[in-house]
Amino acid sequence: MPLIAITDVRKRFGANEVLKGIDLDVAAGEVCAIIGRSGSGKSTLLRCVNGLETIDGGSILVAGTHVSSEDQQLRALRLKVGMIFQQFNLFPHLTAGRNVMLSPMVVRKMPVGEAEDLARRMLDRVGLGQKFDAYPDQLSGGQQQRVAIARALAMQPLALLCDEITSALDPELVNEVLAVVGELAADGMTLMMVTHEMRFARQVCDRVVFMHQGRIHEIGPPDELFSAPRTPELRQFLGSTAH
């Protein structure tokens, strides 16, 4: 059974239908990249998976639980899937360590000492053990994004959703974040990532999904998709992003 099962998902913003029937299964441990032009619906799809957007049709199952708009169910779902954002969204009034500790303490009722140990382990895992007491505005963008990853990992999710997590970074900071994501992938974490890093997608992902105008236009292993795109849209898209 797939960990994330997306079936005929539809989503509209007013008159604009951004998802026109998406079917996609992501297996446990799979790393799945979603590529496509801006406005193709890839970020919306990701946000639907953890309920930040409600869907207008179809169904999404995560580890056997339906994604609904019901509060209690939504919270249960979010304990299973973590999300990392383009703009990091760290809590600016808390130190890096406290950012990581907050949710385990508030949601899982973990005692302070235990949460602190956990936060140190998670920050070590992203290579920022020494930044425990730094505030977000004292960290570089790459470091902030790694803290955000540690924060998501502290909730021990089954899957991580990454929404263009390197797009807001200066080019020289992109690799440190991708290295962390690469390690997670190697450790067997299930990842769904919207990305513009084609080289990374090619190296790390098991499968690449190309979205075009609200539909999955092409899907397959990265080697196949990148070296032999079947549709003119993908060929054009790859041509325009080739460095």
Partner: peptide, 15 residues
């Protein structure tokens, strides 16, 4: 983004 990040971490409205 602060609402979305905290919601994604499983927090409820009052939390």
């Amino acid at each position: 983004g602060q609402w979305e990040a905290s919601a994604s971490l499983g927090m409820g409205y009052l939390e």
